[in-house]
Amino acid sequence: MSLSDLSDVLKPVAEARGLPNAHYTSEEVFQAERKPLWFDTWAGICTASDVPEPGDARPVDFLGVPLFVLRGKDGVVRVFQNICRHRGMILVTEPRKIEGAIRCPYHSWCYSHEGRLVATPHVGGPGHNTHPEMKREEMGLMEVRAHVWMDVVFINLSGDAPAFEEQHAKLIDRWGEFDVPLYHGGADSTFTLICRTNWKLAVENYCESYHLPWVHPGLNSYSRLEDHYHIMEPEFSGQGTEVYRQIEDEDGMRFPDFPGLSEKWDTAGEYVTVTPNVLLGVQRDHVFAILLEPKGAGVTEEHIHLYYAVPEAPEGLRRKNAAQWRVVFEEDIGVVEGMQKARGAWGYDGGRFSPAMDGPTHHFHRWVAERLMRSEGALAAE
Rank of each mutant, 00 (worst) to 15 (best):
M139T: 05
M139K: 11
M139P: 00
M139Y: 07
G140M: 09
G140D: 06
L141D: 00
L141R: 04
L141H: 03
L141Y: 02
L141A: 06
M142T: 08
M142V: 09
M142A: 10
M142Q: 12
M142W: 10
M142Y: 00
M142E: 14
M142K: 12
M142L: 13
M142F: 04
E143S: 14
E143V: 01
E143Q: 15
E143F: 00
V144Y: 05
V144S: 08
V144C: 07
V144F: 04
R145G: 08
R145K: 14
R145A: 08
R145N: 10
A146V: 03
A146R: 12
A146N: 14
H147G: 02
H147Q: 10
V148M: 04
V148A: 06
W149I: 05
W149S: 10
W149A: 12
W149L: 06
W149P: 05
M150I: 08
D151N: 14
D151T: 13
D151Y: 00
D151R: 13
V152Q: 00
V153H: 06
V153W: 05
F154R: 09
F154K: 08
I155P: 05
I155T: 02
N156S: 03
L157I: 11
L157P: 11
L157S: 10
L157R: 11
L157Q: 12
L157K: 06
L157Y: 12
S158D: 07
S158M: 02
G159W: 01
G159H: 01
G159A: 00
G159F: 01
G159T: 02
D160H: 15
D160A: 15
D160S: 15
A161D: 02
A161L: 02
A161R: 02
A161Q: 04
P162R: 03
P162S: 01
A163N: 06
A163I: 01
A163S: 08
F164A: 05
F164R: 05
F164L: 07
E165P: 07
E165M: 06
E165A: 12
E165L: 07
E165I: 09
E166K: 10
E166D: 11
E166N: 08
E166Q: 12
E166V: 10
E166M: 06
E166S: 09
Q167E: 14
Q167Y: 09
Q167H: 07
Q167S: 07
Q167I: 05
Q167M: 15
H168I: 08
H168T: 11
H168S: 09
H168G: 07
H168Q: 13
H168M: 14
A169Q: 11
A169R: 12
A169Y: 02
K170T: 13
K170L: 15
K170M: 13
K170H: 12
L171H: 10
L171M: 14
L171E: 13
L171F: 14
I172P: 05
D173E: 15
D173Y: 08
R174Y: 11
W175L: 15
W175R: 09
W175C: 12
G176E: 10
G176L: 01
G176K: 12
G176D: 13
G176Q: 11
